[in-house]
Design a binder for these strands. Structure first.
Lengths: 197, 197
DNA sequence: CTTAAGATAGACAGATCTGTCTGATACCGT
DNA sequence: ACGGTATCAGACAGATCTGTCTATCTTAAG
């Protein structure tokens, strides 16, 4: 009746502490600048314990990104099962982007930031990033299709651009100047259909 | 009649070689992963010479970004003095973004990539990035004003989002799928004015 | 010619980082 | 009660990184 061994591992408190500490440090300071020593010290975990749960640092980075991915997926899935209007979900997503972008400690997108430090597209970390981005694009496409967009694939690609732009801009420019423009931008993209050239 | 000492320094061939090598390596592999040793080895420059021209590695990073900034500025300035229609310049800029985004070795925006590795907004590297982004925004705003946009400030902010989104997407997704959508996105933003809520 | 500046090779210090290993302790299910 | 698993503390190896320093060589201006 107990959970299998792999499950034990996943829910180990030490592992949990490492993951939480790593998430905070990685996001705030970057992947290469934060060393294992600092993570385990702050998490209060022995080095052997860390390497018992993660075969290497890259695997911790992967786990950090994967958890963030699952977190976002769960939040969106909750909205979709709540049977909210697809267009309302889109508005809510972009409203949320603006809000968190202007919140304290915001430091851009964990995935694009990670990509900047892992150039090799074949690297496992990059594969996780690619997975996340495929999911995002598919999510936009499906919502747009439900909302009756005439070309969901194309509009979803534009929404990805908008999303990335908001996140980058909130980090590098004044997020409060950006915030009131987001809704406008979204509406231009959603309602401004392009006449065939 | 000779150039002043500081000018000598700037145009030193060794310095030039270091800067070129650093630019290639930094862009392709990241800032923290590329060490001084590798740069000077590949540039064929002695360590003492390097530290004669740059007080520290961060200063090299700054110089690398600053040079990219000046390069872009010069290219744009050339277009503007050629008295091309402002809207045509905007179209050309975004066309260019799509083209380079799909070219071999593309690895995203040097500035946003650098920001991911330098979290502290007060750091000189971040200041250079901020300067570049202010210039970009101002450029968009002025072009839009010339082109008769009813709210150049606001539309410029949206164009910044679009720009960042294209660059990120070209790096992390399929750039060839993105390319044919760019013009559409740009036109939706430029022509789709939002009715006052 | 003299002198100052640019350049070279490479050793060196000091810090840091990843990953391994030892040895001991606590806990938990069977 | 036993055996596996998680955990701890910390030493250790090996690599790497930044920045300094010595000692020598070339070059060009005055």
């Amino acid at each position: 009746m107990t959970a299998p061994a792999s499950e034990h591992r996943r829910q180990s408190p030490a592992r949990r502490r490492v993951l939480d500490t790593a998430a905070a440090l990685f996001y705030a300071e970057g992947l290469h600048t934060v060393g294992i020593d600092r993570i385990i010290a702050q998490a209060g975990v022995a080095k052997a314990t860390f390497y018992h749960h993660f075969p290497a640092k890259d695997e911790l980075v992967r786990a950090y990104l994967d958890e963030e991915y699952q977190r976002q997926r769960a939040a969106i899935e909750a909205m979709r099962t709540a049977s909210i209007e697809p267009r309302q979900i889109l508005l809510a997503i972009f409203e949320y982007l603006g809000k968190t972008g202007a919140s304290a400690g915001f430091r851009g997108c964990p995935f694009t930031n990670a990509a900047a430090e892992y150039p090799d597209p074949a690297h496992p970390v990059r594969r996780t990033i690619a997975e996340y981005r495929r999911w995002s694009h598919t999510l936009f496409r499906d919502l747009l299709a439900d909302a009756g967009d005439p070309d969901p694939e194309r509009t979803a690609t534009i929404l990805m651009m908008l999303r990335d732009g908001i996140v980058v801009g909130s980090d590098l420019d004044d997020p409060n100047a950006l915030r009131p423009v987001i809704r406008d931008a979204l509406i231009r993209v959603l309602d401004g259909q392009t006449p065939p050239t």
